[in-house]
Design a protein around this nucleic acid. Structure first.
Length: 524
RNA sequence: GGCGAUGUAGCUCAGCUGGUUAGAGCGAAGGAUUCAUAAACCUUAGGUCGGCGGUUCGAGUCCGCCCAUCGCCA
């Protein structure tokens, strides 16, 4: 028995000091679509998400509420886990940076970095704002005349010993790596940003702090706490047990390295440069791709606390109540900021996308096809009588859609994959309009022709439903039920399922209305 | 302030190495039709391709400057 090819996809770990909002839901949804698609395509998938729980902000928030930081982390991590459930997301693990499996492995990794001389104890001198408990850069300090921009009090010259990661030592290897792997950072615009900054030269980065204690202690020097990036980035490795000293007892090493780290653009630098450098230092294989999407804005404006226009969890749940979970997924994937520019979340746009794509195209095409089979063939799919329709090749269209879908999924062009699938249904619609089965049905002598039309429509709809299943899992399950297909789309078989066949002939079909028409929202 | 990107029909965007009447989807208007969720179908919409200048026989498509928006960095 040969091992199936693996696929390892990750979201960033979400900071527990935040409340879940559309940004988190979006990233995780994208990963979920891809994970489902890869499972269906037969790959051995590991889909990871989790929470980042250390750091000064969590420590501070907890202190303000008079509770233990761990208690705060537990509370908010539970909220993030609830999101996964509400959205029906299919992650294989949920890692938390306060879990002992993570803590001990981070320490092991850091020890290794020390041994390799990739981490060293260095001294930092800078302008310190005592009120804010933070350093300001020389430039910023000069701008404010060496006083605190907040309190106005003079800044003090302070020195601090910290452990540094020798990032500068990896300049050439990183440049060579980027050269050899043009697809490492995507989309292209983001790659260019990284390359530009790389050209400016790399500086070593501190990886420990001493001004707070809520974090993983530095091995053998516990007054230092490992700073966010090393702690957080390593989750991708610790979740697979890459630094456990039990070998591969968890059986997850086969997933390493990640095929895809999906992130938001704000953390690109860490993933695109620091992360591969750390892995080079650890002598671990590098991930295939870091995909940095952009942000959602809301009704034309940046989301902010002061504007109160955050698309938060309750807002999202309202949309899901009205339009359904699958409709939410569709909007995220089709209208979202997969590219280099931000996308605008609009109530009117949501409604329009729902109506145009799901009601008028997917739902309607399934409806008219199943309705005609019900009306003209008593609900039993006829066998294709082989009639030739000049200029129409549905099997060919299905094969093309499948190829395009496959290529799109391979490059995380999820919107394009959706387009490929729905395009096949548009072809079915056009085929019906051109061949006019509803007229053919009036002539008993054209029975074969009618059977050929509807058999082909049903088969194309079936194949489209396969391609749509990772994006619209619940609705496509409904459609499969209406076509009397019993199928597990989560465990391989895509290529076989997406191939043109006559398997529907003789099966019973019921008319479906997958996406109910919904009245446009009043406001806006 | 440095580097980079973008600016094309009401909206969202295509337009590769410059070449006849600048495209698609959605929206809007009109028409025709009924298998279907008042859906699908047909036709239409006349946008100085951000502005100015330049290169060229010829420029959304190249160059310069300017304006606007955005991103990364400082």
């Amino acid at each position: 028995m040969t091992a199936r090819p693996t696929a390892y996809i990750t979201t960033p770990i979400y900071y527990v000091n935040d409340r879940p909002h559309i940004g988190h839901a979006y990233t995780t949804t994208l990963c979920d679509v891809w994970a489902r698609a890869m499972r269906f395509a037969g790959r051995d998938v590991f889909f990871l998400t989790g929470t980042d729980e250390h750091g000064v902000k969590v420590e501070k928030s907890a202190r303000e509420r008079g509770i233990d930081p761990q208690a705060l982390a537990d509370e908010n991590a539970a909220e993030f886990e609830r999101v996964l459930e509400v959205f029906g997301l299919t992650n294989d693990d949920f890692i938390r940076t306060t879990q002992s499996r993570h803590v001990r492995q981070v320490q092991a990794f850091v020890k290794r970095l020390l041994e390799m001389d990739a981490v060293y104890l260095g001294e930092f001198e800078g302008w310190y704002d005592e009120g804010q408990e933070e350093y300001v850069t020389e430039n910023r300090a000069r701008e404010t005349d060496y006083t605190s921009p907040i309190s106005g009090r003079p800044l003090v010259k302070a020195t601090e010993k910290n452990y540094y990661f020798r990032l500068s030592a990896f300049q050439e290897r990183l440049e060579a790596f980027f050269e050899a792997n043009p697809g490492f950072v995507r989309p292209e615009a983001r790659r260019n940003e990284v390359l530009g900054r790389l050209r400016d030269g790399l500086q070593d980065v501190p990886i420990t702090r001493t001004n707070f204690s809520w974090g993983i202690p530095f091995p053998d020097d516990e007054q230092h706490v490992i700073y966010v990036w090393i702690d957080a980035l390593l989750n991708y490795a610790t979740a697979l047990g890459m630094a456990e000293d039990d070998g591969d007892a968890g059986g997850r090493h086969r997933y390493w390295p990640a095929d895809l780290h999906v992130i938001g653009k704000e953390i690109l630098w860490f993933h695109a440069v620091i992360w591969p450098a750390v892995l080079m230092a650890l002598d671990l294989p590098l991930p295939t791709c870091v995909y940095a999407h952009s942000f959602w804005i809301s009704e034309g404006q940046k989301m902010s606390k002061s504007l109160g226009n955050f698309i938060d969890l309750p807002t999202i749940e309202r949309y899901m109540d009205t339009y359904g979970l699958d409709a939410w997924r569709w909007y995220m994937v089709v209208q979202g900021p997969l590219g280099a520019t931000d996308a605008d979340f609009q109530a009117a746009g949501f409604h329009e996308t729902y109506t145009t794509d799901l009601v008028n195209t997917v739902g309607n095409c399934a409806s008219r096809t199943t309705a005609m089979i019900g009306k003209y063939f008593d609900g039993v799919v006829p066998a294709d009588a082989g009639t030739v329709f000049e200029g129409w090749d549905l099997p060919g269209a299905a094969a093309t859609a499948f190829e395009r879908w496959t290529a799109a999924m391979a490059t995380f062009a999820l919107d394009d994959a959706c387009e490929a699938a729905i395009g096949l249904l548009r072809t079915v619609d056009a085929f019906i309009n051109a061949t006019e089965p509803f007229k053919v049905a009036k002539d008993e002598s054209r029975r074969d022709e009618l059977a050929s039309i509807l058999a082909r429509c049903a088969e194309a709809v079936r194949i489209a439903s396969m391609l749509l299943s990772p994006i619209l899992p619940a609705k496509m399950a409904e459609l499969r039920a209406a076509l009397s297909i019993d199928l597990d789309v989560a465990n391989g078989g895509l290529a076989e399922q997406a191939a043109w066949s006559d398997r529907l002939a003789g099966s019973t079909v019921t008319k479906v209305a997958l996406f109910p028409r919904i009245e446009a929202p009043q406001d806006a």
